[in-house]
Design a protein around this nucleic acid. Structure first.
Lengths: 228, 228
DNA sequence: CCTCGGCATCAGGGTTCCGTCAAGACGGCC
DNA sequence: GGCCGTCTTGACGGAACCCTGATGCCGAGG
């Protein structure tokens, strides 16, 4: 776990300093930023392995920082926030954050979550020859085919498109809006009914027990996740 | 994987810098270009092993850059784009790009695709594999001949061209647009009717039961696949 | 207790897509 | 010029698919 780069974004010098010391002691290569603008440029120029982002910044909203970084990078973002309520937790995760830690926090927990975030993101995705196996399901992204218990399952174009997006983002939350845009195109961001219809069809074709799915999971209010 | 040369074409300094750092850390020899004109000249003078091209350039369309490079070089081109929807993905692949990565992307995925692109380009077609046997069918790609149950089947030039594309991509999905472009050339991307006519003719000549084909399979809404 | 919003499921109708046949259009060759 | 194989284009039946509305379920909130 040594040598991984973390970008710490926090405007409180004391906390930022404490975090930097602790992280360096754990073998991290630490860079810091005190505001949103420098956080974005630093994320671009230094290519960190994970970003630790405090939502309370002086110059801009933490959500905008997430959105800006997500404009081009999938680097894992772990959010740090004082808010107790789940309101902005949902917003942050929807904007593209990977995990969420509420202040006050235990340093051990924070370290564990950073490690977990890096571990998840380091799963390579060689799409040109990708065959994803999830239980009795086999999804061949190159051939556009799905096998269930070894037999081919016939999917319609829209079903396949939706499954493809979910599988390419396997293990990650795919927001309702993102899913709608990637499958149906821009302008369909609010047709959430489509998602229900097609997730149900996919589950009927792919899940052993469609009422209790094990792979195509609903994250209420957020979106869907494909679990391996 | 060391020593391979990559040309990074991106007009965002931050992102280009981040890409250069990450690629160098992975053993690539990196050159950069910030606009389309210098990208083309650099591709010509430096002869990179792969080109990583951001579609959003200031001076010219990314598609024109692809077309220009394809005018004299077969270097693999991996396209980077902000668009979520597959609209210009199809355009880029039709113009001659080899692969496509959508922002936001995971660095691991990008590295994997670059490696895959170089690997594919460095493995020329092996003459020993130029004869493909599928059931009672034998397709000789080098001699442009087809045998069915040992007797030669006479194909028209267009029929052979379509079969050749399918067989060279045997086991993989060949998209409708890709098929049309490779057989009829650019500008025929929407003439899907041709595909129906010629797939029917090929099936009549090659399949034992043309109504229930075992080799030339259609994937509704997507394209065709040759199955061995 | 009732309402309300989000999710899952089902069914039908309009539309698109595929396969098929066949008639012109085109071009090479004698 | 006429013949012949090939390519293009049109028409049509049937199947598959996509969208949409209706209904029921569940949990949150008043």
């Amino acid at each position: 776990m040594t040598g991984n780069r973390v970008l710490v974004v926090d405007d409180e010098p004391g906390l930022a300093h404490a975090l930097a010391i602790t992280l360096r002691a754990s073998g991290w290569d630490v860079a810091t930023a005190a505001d949103g603008a420098s956080a974005i440029t630093s994320a671009a120029s230094r290519a960190p392995d994970v970003v630790l982002l405090d939502l309370g910044l002086p110059d801009m909203s933490g959500l905008d920082v997430i959105t800006a970084i997500r404009g081009w990078s999938r680097v894992p973002i772990v959010v740090l926030s004082a808010r107790q309520h789940g309101e902005d937790k949902v917003d942050a995760l929807d904007a593209g954050a990977d995990d969420y830690v509420t202040k006050p926090f235990a340093m051990n927990e924070l370290l564990a979550r950073l490690r977990a975030a890096v571990r998840r993101s380091s799963v390579p995705d060689d799409a040109s020859e990708a065959v994803v196996v999830a239980g009795s399901l086999t999804v061949d992204l190159a051939r556009a085919r799905v096998l269930r218990d070894g037999v081919e399952v016939r999917l319609t174009p829209t079903e396949w498109s939706m499954l493809e997006v979910l599988v390419r983002n396997r293990g990650r939350l795919v927001g309702r809006r993102q899913l709608l845009q990637e499958v149906w195109g821009p302008g369909y961001s609010d047709e959430t009914h489509y998602l229900r219809v097609y997730s149900a069809q996919l589950r009927r074709k792919l899940e052993a027990d469609p009422a209790h799915p094990r792979h195509i999971l609903t994250q209420p209010g957020l979106g869907y996740t494909f679990e391996v």
